[in-house]
Nucleic acid binder design. Structure first.
Lengths: 366, 366
DNA sequence: TTGAAAGCGCTAACAG
DNA sequence: CTGTTAGCGCTTTCAA
C-alpha cells in the first residue's frame, strides 16, 4: 500500500462533506436540522417562535434539540442579523455599593427585556475607561452606558462615533444643564447635579448654626463629582460668611481614611471646625467611629454629614445624617431610557433624578 | 408628475453598489482597505502584527485607520477564527465586597492577558444561574467560572458539555476533597473547605472557655456554604460537650438583621449564649452595634465572631474577630489557572487557598 | 509581502 | 409552512 499523507489527512471526502475543516466540536444548527430532517432555517425559526412551524416538525426539532445539547452561537447570530442585544456599561468600580446597586438596576431592567449586560470597571481611570470602551464597542452593543461627563479625548471620539452610528450613549451619575450654548455635552445624562448637592450640604450645616466648617474630599483624585460637591459647598458656605477648610482623605481603605481625617480635625491649629461634610459615607463612618474612640461628642463637639446614605450609617449612634441617592433608580431609569431609545431609534432622554438630604442625629442642632 | 411611493423609497440604486443592504453604518475592514489601496486581509494582518506588511503599506493603512474611526467587529472576528477571548463568570452577587474583590482579581488577571470578562450575578438563585449560564455559553467563552459546587441539574449538564468540548470550567469559593470514589465533582475547584472554617470557628470559641454557643446562619437560604460552616461548627461544639443554638438571620439588610438577632439572643429563655459566631461580618457588625446600644458588653457578656474580615469590623471597639478570606487570591489564582488551562488545552488545576482566623477584642478571653 | 477563494454559524429576503 | 440563495465581517488556507 502506498503511504497516505499524515493520517489526519486521509481521503476526508467521506465524513458528511467538509465536516470538520474549521469547526470546533460544538453542535451547530445544521446538525440539529439534519437530525430533525429539516434545514437549518427551519430550526432557526422554531427557536425564535415555535408556533411558525408545523406541529410535527416542531416535535422532531424539539426532540433533536434536547438530545443534542445545542447552544446557539451568538457570534454568528448577531453577525447575521446585525442586531445586538448587548448593552455595554462602564462604572468606576463594582465593589462600592453605590455603583453595585446601579448595576443591579440596570441588569434587572435589561434582563427582563432580553438584553445582556457587558460590564466593566474603570477604577476611576479615564485611560482605562478609553481602553475598555474601545474593547466593548467591538461587540457593537445596542447601547453604551458610561459614568460621568468627563472622559479622555479618545473616549469622547469613540462615544461620538457610536452615537453618530445610531447607538444610544448615556452618561450616568451626573446631570448638568448645558452651559450658555457653548460646548453642551452631546450625550444623554441621567443622574443629578452634584453642585446642587454640595450646596444643600452646606446650607444644612449653616442652618444648624455652624460657622466653621470642613469639607473632606475623596482621596480618589479622579472623582471629579466629589470635587464638584466640595467646590459648591465651599462657595455657599463662604458666601454665607462661614470659614471652610478643605481636607483630602488619604487613599486606601475609606474607614481608615475617615479615622485619620477625624484625628487631624481635632488637632488642627486653625479655628476648630464645628461641622464636617464628607465626600462619602464610608469616610464619615470612619470619622464617627474615631470620634467615639477619642471621646469626641457628635454632634455637640462636631457635627458630621455624609454622602450616599449607606446602610451602616443608619446603625451608628448617633445615626449619620447623609444624602440619600437614587442609586437603584439611576440603573432602572437608564435601562428604561435605553430600551425606549433602542426601540424608537432615537437618542435616549436625559433625566435629573431626585436625591434627599436626610437629617439624623449626627447633625442635630442642640 | 406621477406620485412616487412613500418618499423614503425613491430610486436608491446609486450608492456604491449593494452598500447598505444589510450593513449597519459602521466602518468595516474593507472600507479601510479600500482607502489604503489594499485588500482587507492585508489590513487584518497589519492589525495583528504591523511588522508583516511592507513599511509603506503599513503607513497607508495606519493613515486610513486613524482617519476612519474603525472599530473591529468581534462577532465577525471570533466567528471566523473560532477562538474566543471571553471568560464567563457567574457570581452570586456583585454588591457584596466578598465577591466584588474576587471579580476584581479575575478581571485584572484576565485583562492583562487580553481576555475579556463577561460577568453576571445570580442572586444566589440556581435557576437564574442556569439561565445565565445558558446565555453566556452562547458566546462560546474560552473558560467558564461558576461559584460553588452545587448547581441545578440543567446547569450541570451545560457545564459538563462545555468541559467535554474542551472548555475549562472552574468552581470557585469552595474546595471539597472528593468523597471515597463515588460522585467526585468533575470540575476544578478553587477555594477552601467551609466545613474546616466552621470547625475552626467553634474551636476558637471553645478555647476561650465558652460552653454555651450560638451560630447565626445567613438569611439567604441558598447560601449552602454558610450552612456547611454552621453544621461543622455545631458538630465540633457538641462533640466538645457545649450547647449550640442555631439561629437564622432574617432576610433583608444584613446590619439590621444582625441587630435583630442580637436583641433576640439577649431575650432567649434558654441558657443564654456567651459567644456567637455569625455567617458573615455584616451580621456580626450589626450585632456589635446593637450590643453597644443595648449596653451588652463584648466580649464579657457575649463574645462575637464574624466571617469575612470586612474593613468595618476592624474599626469597631472592640475590634471584631473574624475569618480572613482569600477573596482577591481566589480571583487571581483562578485567572492564572484559567490562562494556563487555555494555553495547555488541559483542565485547570484545583487549589485549596489559605484562610486565617484572626482573633481580636470581640472574642478575647478575660 | 500580498491576494483570491472559501467558509465560520447564523439569519434576511424571497421564492415555492 | 419550508427551502434556496446570499451574505454579515472577518480569518483561514493556499497560491503567487
Amino acid at each position: 500500500m502506498s503511504r497516505s499523507p499524515p493520517d489526519t489527512a486521509t481521503d476526508a471526502a467521506g465524513t458528511t462533506a467538509r465536516q470538520a475543516r474549521r469547526g470546533h466540536g460544538r453542535v451547530t444548527l445544521r446538525q440539529v436540522a439534519l437530525a430533525a430532517g429539516v434545514t437549518s432555517i427551519t430550526v432557526s425559526r422554531y427557536l425564535r417562535d415555535a408556533s411558525v412551524v408545523a406541529p410535527d416538525t416542531a416535535a422532531r426539532i424539539q426532540q433533536a434539540l434536547s438530545s443534542s445539547g445545542y447552544v446557539p452561537n451568538k457570534q454568528a447570530g448577531l453577525l447575521a442579523s446585525g442586531v445586538s442585544n448587548i448593552v455595554a456599561a462602564l462604572l468606576p468600580n463594582l465593589a462600592n455599593s453605590i455603583f453595585a446597586e446601579t448595576a443591579q438596576g440596570l441588569s434587572d431592567g435589561l434582563q427582563a427585556a432580553g438584553f445582556e449586560l457587558l460590564i466593566a470597571s474603570t477604577g476611576y481611570s479615564m485611560e482605562r475607561e478609553e481602553q475598555l470602551l474601545r474593547a466593548l464597542l467591538g461587540w457593537h452593543p445596542a447601547a453604551v452606558v458610561v459614568t460621568g461627563r468627563r472622559h479622555a479625548s479618545g473616549a469622547l471620539k469613540l462615544m461620538t462615533d457610536a452615537r453618530n452610528a445610531g447607538t444610544p450613549v448615556i452618561e450616568i451619575w451626573d446631570h448638568r444643564v448645558s452651559r450658555p450654548a457653548s460646548k453642551a455635552s452631546p450625550f444623554t445624562q441621567i443622574g443629578f447635579n452634584h453642585a446642587d448637592v454640595g450646596r444643600a450640604m452646606a446650607l444644612h450645616l449653616l442652618a444648624a448654626g455652624h460657622r466653621t466648617l470642613a469639607y473632606v474630599d475623596s482621596g480618589v483624585s479622579e472623582d471629579y463629582r466629589a470635587h464638584e460637591r466640595g467646590t459648591a459647598f465651599k462657595q455657599v458656605a463662604r458666601a454665607a460668611g462661614a470659614q471652610v477648610a478643605v481636607l483630602v482623605a488619604p487613599p486606601g481603605d475609606a474607614f481608615e481614611a475617615g479615622r485619620h481625617v477625624m484625628a487631624q480635625l481635632q488637632t488642627a491649629r486653625q479655628p476648630r471646625a464645628t461641622a464636617a461634610a464628607f465626600a462619602n459615607d464610608n469616610l464619615a463612618c470612619g470619622a464617627m467611629l474615631q470620634a467615639q474612640r477619642a471621646g469626641v461628642r457628635v454632634p455637640q463637639d462636631l457635627a458630621v454629614l455624609g454622602f450616599g446614605d449607606f446602610a451602616l450609617g443608619r446603625q451608628l449612634t448617633p445615626a449619620l445624617s447623609s444624602v440619600q441617592l437614587p442609586r437603584l433608580a439611576i440603573g432602572q431609569h437608564t435601562a428604561q431610557a435605553l430600551l425606549d431609545a433602542i426601540r424608537m431609534g432615537k437618542p435616549a432622554e436625559a433625566a435629573s433624578l431626585p436625591w434627599t438630604l436626610v437629617s439624623r442625629g449626627s447633625t442635630a442642632a442642640d
